[in-house]
Design a protein around this nucleic acid. Sequence first.
DNA 1: CGTTTCCATGGAATCGTTTCCAAGGCGACC
DNA 2: GGTCGCCTTGGAAACGATTCCATGGAAACG
Lengths: 336, 336
Amino acid sequence: MDSTVTIKDVAALAGVSVGTTSRVLSGNPSTSPAARERVHAAVAELGYRPDARARSLRSARSQTVGLLISDVRNPFFADVAHGAEQAALRSSYVTLLANANEDPKQQDTYLESFLTQRVDGIIIAPQGEESAHLRTLATTVPLVFVDRTVDGFEVPSVTSDNALGIDQAVAHLADRGHTRIGYIGGPRSISTGRARHDAFVRSVARHGLDTDPGLITSGDFRSASGAVAAERLLSGGQPPTALLAADSPMAVGALGALRRRGLRIGSDVDLVAFDDIEWFSELDPPLTVVSHDAQAMGSTAMRLLLDVIEGRTPESVVLPTRLVVRESSGGARRQA
Amino acid sequence: MDSTVTIKDVAALAGVSVGTTSRVLSGNPSTSPAARERVHAAVAELGYRPDARARSLRSARSQTVGLLISDVRNPFFADVAHGAEQAALRSSYVTLLANANEDPKQQDTYLESFLTQRVDGIIIAPQGEESAHLRTLATTVPLVFVDRTVDGFEVPSVTSDNALGIDQAVAHLADRGHTRIGYIGGPRSISTGRARHDAFVRSVARHGLDTDPGLITSGDFRSASGAVAAERLLSGGQPPTALLAADSPMAVGALGALRRRGLRIGSDVDLVAFDDIEWFSELDPPLTVVSHDAQAMGSTAMRLLLDVIEGRTPESVVLPTRLVVRESSGGARRQA
DNA sequence: CGTTTCCATGGAATCGTTTCCAAGGCGACC
DNA sequence: GGTCGCCTTGGAAACGATTCCATGGAAACG
């Protein structure tokens, strides 16, 4: 019932034309105080709510942005989404949140849907390598990458300083006397997977640690793959004395694998994760992490996107990382 | 560039009228094979994408539903959202996800925004008590409650069997010989907070356990409040030997509090949580939980909503819970 | 007092679709 | 062979807003 009230009904009740009503509602200065008053009274009485579809159809602005993330259930991306959404709200934009579910096909489905909804812009944490779809997208609508990038795109992005973060973790483990660090990386098809891997290789060499390629494994950024990778690293002839996981779900997987082997974390084996998650400090032992501010990443991405929408050409942003040492690499080491 | 292609351009290129083009695209059977072929060719050549706003403006169907949850960063709700979204996708609806952030004011902001977007329906995990806003909402647009309900609303809902779940947990702890169980509940302003509290009181009495009101505390469904509540329970003169938390973030908070007190979980004190979270089994010790299927809750809610949208009047659904015993209440108890 | 300027207003066009209506063409049936 | 009916089509109205354009009246200026 309520929702069938249109601007015509408001105009009729207020005794003015539709044009005048629209001007009053959009804050156009060419309106008399009398008209303003009567229109506002009519709006209140009828419970009128403008139709965003009609409005944006005519005005070519939908006040809507799309946010496409890899996996809502990954706490890191949930935080990113939260930050982006709050920033959008402050600029009175509505966020359409879509969940690619780490599946390039769903990613395309949602991008398609964003486009038919005529969003004013899109923030995306891209899946996999460059797709033709993404390519046409970039020329069609304002676009910003968040957390991940795709090579060859002139698109503003917000990322973490992966090289710094990995180096902080490696330096810390080297300080604790480790020479053989096992690395659990992400897929090479994702930019963060590549960046962190390359940083690890460089950092290990720089600190003069063991560069044995057998110390490097990779998973798919999900929990189960972390367990498999940890298992493989530890069952080698000369197992590492510390593990560095490239994201938090894989770190959790590795944690389980270590425990199942009966190893004590923080003394038998050190464990460090990239990504901080609220409850990591409640684990037993609390996990040492490379922390980066997911929420800030989201809000920054939204700021860049709004800049692009308004015609500016913002610079990409690289956010700093910070090492937070906890007990998983903070206790006394038990020497073999 | 791409996005300025309209149905007129397609019609012109295909050499047919706009009406015919529209009929072909919407699968109207009154079209000749020749017309179909030419229209589809033109669509492909121009990269045409229909404008969802114009379409829904005319057809009064937006193929869009709103999903308003309490907190995206709570893994339980992230799973609910995931389930709902996937179900919507299967019926080719788009989900607008909004995050009330456990704040009734933001809830209203988003509801307002859903309404101006003319969504076809809304799924909501309501905050706080009945608001006038919610009341008018229910008469305006198809509505479904998920996880939580509000008294006095004739609205279909999907909830967990809170009474069953709490009873499973209490029975399990009673079996293990506990007589004093500390309860960490949620706010009374939220239906799940009330239902679980009442179930706890009844269940404790039924099993002949200690009904000391000092054993009952409550938080706000967030982590920090769980720690505070656990602290208070344990610092009493006659502390409980087991703790039951009404949701997972509070359980995590309680876990931290127990550990800071130097208590061993599963032997000194048992801990059980309502809500299962993937990584609960990776904690040390793995947490005993009352498990309910958040994803099913989301997809069921979406099914109910689509039913309502299509004019049916579906029954509310109560999903079963299941006790999963792990080491936090599975080992040998250390008798005081 | 006449003319110009400005402000508020109403009416109409417009955005990109869907859908209704009228009509043309063609086969089929009597 | 004529009429009926079906199938397909084009044209136009409609959805609910914004915005352009023209107009009327009041204020200001000479």
